[in-house]
Amino acid sequence: MSQSLFMPLAEAVRHFVHDGDSVALEGFTHLIPFAAGHEIIRQEKRHLTLIRMTPDIIYDQMIGMGCADKLVFSWGGNPGVGSIHRFRDAYEHSWPRPLAIEEYSHAAMAAMYQAGASRLPFATLRGFIGNDLPQYNHNIRQVECPFSGERLAAVPALNPDVTILHAQRADRHGNVWIKGIVGAQKEAALAAKRVIVTVEEQVDELEAPLNAVILPHWTLAAVCVVPRGAHPSYAHGHYSRDNAFCIAWDAISRERDSFLAWMDRHVMQVRDFAETLQLITAAQRTELA
């Protein structure tokens, strides 16, 4: 039974991601599921509501390729580098299509995933004090504590149709072990209706220590083995963040033409992520030579 969890990434995306879905690709800088994002772009999924605390390069690519109608987020940029230009072009100039936004803070989104995983309707936090967002995002409301009378921020639960994660390792049953900076991945997974996880490797036994962050196989829809599937993000214990690529993305994505040319060559015209990585590696070797 559990063996059916393992499938090629293209098949998982075809089966479990539909046009119009709300989709959360999570991973706080670490373990960002780039390979899965590329597969969604390649399969030309449309009208997605993209959810992510920190939309960075992968959402820049998905937005620029026209996958998204809406973005739910709390910080959108290329960390340490600057803006994500395709996001800004979509939001400010509706290219390639208009993009609606629903903006929160990190504290709020973490709580919204927790509420979603708990199947509660909303989350409370001592949040947005003095912040102007509630004027524009009417899902940020107030609730009165029934015990103390304190006014607290209330935000709706997040329950994505699909959450997609990348992780280091799955065992033969499909149990997944996430190591290192874990962000809100566990909450985002357990909040979702369906979960796809790409992993660096499949092993017989996880041999994880007690209290490790494990996603049980019976909470997942698909597990796909995709080595280096988080590049240019990183997988702790496997490879480091490719900061040089993240810096290079700024110039690639600044103009529509250079962005489309890069995406066509590295995503649309390849069969899978392994080919994308080969192209990037070859380009970086040439640059170093």
Binding site: M53, P79, A107, A184, H236, S240, I247
Partner: peptide, 29 residues
């Protein structure tokens, strides 16, 4: 210095790593 807020350098050299709900709710809030 980390380029991003979640570089592996920060994780390698940390006493411990906690989740986002934990850092924002149990520590900051």
């Amino acid at each position: 210095l980390p380029l991003s807020i979640g570089d592996d350098e920060l994780a390698e050299k940390a006493d411990s790593i906690v989740s986002m709900p934990e850092i924002f709710r149990y520590y900051l809030q």
